[in-house]
Design a protein around this nucleic acid. Structure first.
Lengths: 241, 241
DNA sequence: TCAAAAGTGTTTAAGGTACACCCATGT
DNA sequence: ACATGGGTGTACCTTAAACACTTTTGA
C-alpha cells in the first residue's frame, strides 16, 4: 500500500493553522511543542479527513490539538514542494504520528486572529505543550512553517488594512478606541498617531459611542464604543486603514 | 485499491488554471470544450505529479492542454469541498480521463493574464476545442469552475490595482498609454478618465516615453512608452491604481 | 500632587475627480 | 473635409500627516 500511494499521483493533504493571538498589547503565535525532547516546534496541523471540506478540517484540527473552538479561519494558500519535509527531526516526528510518514504532503494553510485573554489552549496527547510565543521571538519551526508564518503575517496585515472585520471580531462587544488602536499597532508593528486614528474610524462612522465609560481606572475613564456592522457593510468599498 | 484510496485520508490533488486573455479590447477566458457532445466545458486542469511542486504542476498542465508556455501563474487558492463533483456530466467525463474517477479531488487554482494576440492555444488530444470566451459570456462550466473563475477575477482586479506588474508583463516592450488604459478598463470593467489615467502613471514616473511614435495610423500617432521596472520597484509601496 | 491615559483641532501638502477642446494623421 | 484617436490643464474637494495641550480619575 505504501508502494502504491507514494508512487502514484496521490499525495497526502493536510491543513496547518497559523493562529495569531492579541493580549491587548502584543501579537503572539500559537505553537505546538512536540514530545520527544529534540523535536522542533510546529504549527497545529494534521491530515484532512474524507467528508470534511478544507475549512472544516482546519477547524477540527485546531480544536483537536488545542481545544480552541468557534474560531473563524481564513485560507491563506497551499504549500506543496515535494521536499517540504527535509529535516531529520521532521521525519522522526512524522514516524511517530503518521501511518505513511514518507508520503509527500501538500498543506493548505489557514490563519486567524484571536483574543488571547479569552482563550486557554490545552495540549493534545502527543504534544508536550501548546504555547503562545511572541511573534517577534518565534524560533525555528519544523518543515516550512517559518515560511508559512511569514506569509500569513503579511496576509493578516493586508487583511486588517483592507477589511477591519477581522479586528472587530476579536474585540469584545464594547471596547475603547485605545484597545482598537493597540490592536492595529501590534499587528502592523508600527506606532500610530492617536488623533488621526480616531478621526479615521469616527468620521467613517463604523464605530459608535455607547453611554458607558470605563470604571475604576487610575486615569480619565475612556468612552466605550461598539462596531456598527451594518454601516460598515455599506461603506466597506471605500474604507481602508 | 479504489477501496483503500477512497476511504482513507488520501484525496487526489489537482491544479486548475484560470487564464484571462486580453486582445487589446476585451477580457477573455481560456476554456476547454470536452469531446463527448454533452460534456460541459471546463478550465484546463489535471492531477499533479510526484516530484513537481504546485507551481510547476500548473505550468505543465497548462502546457499539455493548450500548448501555452512560459506563462507566469499565480496561486489563487485551494478548493476542496467533498462534493465539488456533483453533476452527472462531470462524473461521466472523469470516467473517461481518470483511473479512479470517484476519488475526492482537491484542486489548487492558479490564474494568469496573457496577451491574446501573441498566443495560439491548441487543444490536447481529449479536448474538442480550446477556446477564448468573453469573460462576460462564459456559460456554465463543469464542477465548481464558475465559482473558481469568479474568485480569480476578483483577485485579478485586486492584483492589477495594487501591483500593476501583471499588466505590464502582458504588454509589449513599447506600448501606448491607450493600450495600457484599455487593459485597465477591460479588467476592471469600467470606463476610466483619460487625463487622470495618464496623470497617475506619468507623475509616478513608472512609464517613460520613448523616441518613437506609432506609424501608419489614421489619426494623430501616439507616443510609445516603456515600463520603468526599477523605478516601480522603488515606489511600489506607494503606488496603486 | 502625581501618574496615566483620554480626549480634542488646525494647518499644510498631496492626491482624487470632474471636465472640453485642439491636434495630427490617413483616407 | 472628415473621421479617428492623441494629447493637454485647471479648479475643487477630499484625505493624509504632523503636531501639543488640557482633562479626568485613582492612588
Amino acid at each position: 500500500m505504501n508502494q502504491i500511494i507514494s508512487n502514484n499521483l496521490n499525495p497526502h493533504v493536510s491543513v496547518d493553522c497559523v493562529i495569531f493571538g492579541f493580549d491587548g498589547e502584543q501579537l503572539k503565535l500559537l505553537i505546538i511543542e512536540r514530545k520527544p525532547k529534540d523535536a522542533v516546534s510546529a504549527l497545529p496541523g494534521d491530515l484532512i479527513k474524507d467528508n470534511e471540506n478544507l475549512d472544516e478540517a482546519a477547524c477540527r484540527v485546531l480544536y483537536e490539538l488545542t481545544g480552541l473552538k468557534d474560531i473563524y479561519l481564513k485560507q491563506l494558500q497551499a504549500f506543496g514542494d515535494p521536499d517540504r519535509i527535509k529535516d531529520l527531526a521532521d521525519v522522526r516526528w512524522l514516524r511517530d504520528v503518521r501511518e505513511e510518514p514518507l508520503t509527500r504532503v501538500i498543506t493548505i494553510a489557514y490563519y486567524s486572529l484571536v483574543n488571547l485573554a479569552e482563550l486557554a489552549p490545552r495540549p493534545a496527547s502527543f504534544a508536550k505543550e501548546v504555547r503562545w510565543e511572541l511573534v517577534k521571538k518565534v524560533g525555528k519551526l519544523g518543515f516550512d512553517h517559518n515560511y508559512i508564518v511569514d506569509k500569513a503575517l503579511e496576509q493578516l496585515r493586508l487583511n486588517l488594512k483592507y477589511d477591519p472585520l477581522i479586528g472587530f471580531e476579536l474585540l469584545p462587544e464594547k471596547f475603547t478606541l485605545r484597545q482598537l488602536q493597540k490592536l492595529y499597532e501590534a499587528v502592523l508593528d508600527q506606532p500610530i498617531d492617536k488623533r488621526n486614528f480616531r478621526k479615521k474610524f469616527l468620521t467613517a462612522k463604523i464605530v459608535v459611542s455607547l453611554d458607558e465609560k470605563e470604571q475604576n481606572v487610575p486615569h480619565k475613564p475612556a468612552q466605550y464604543y461598539r462596531f456598527d456592522r451594518k454601516r460598515y457593510m455599506r461603506i466597506k468599498d471605500r474604507f481602508w486603514f
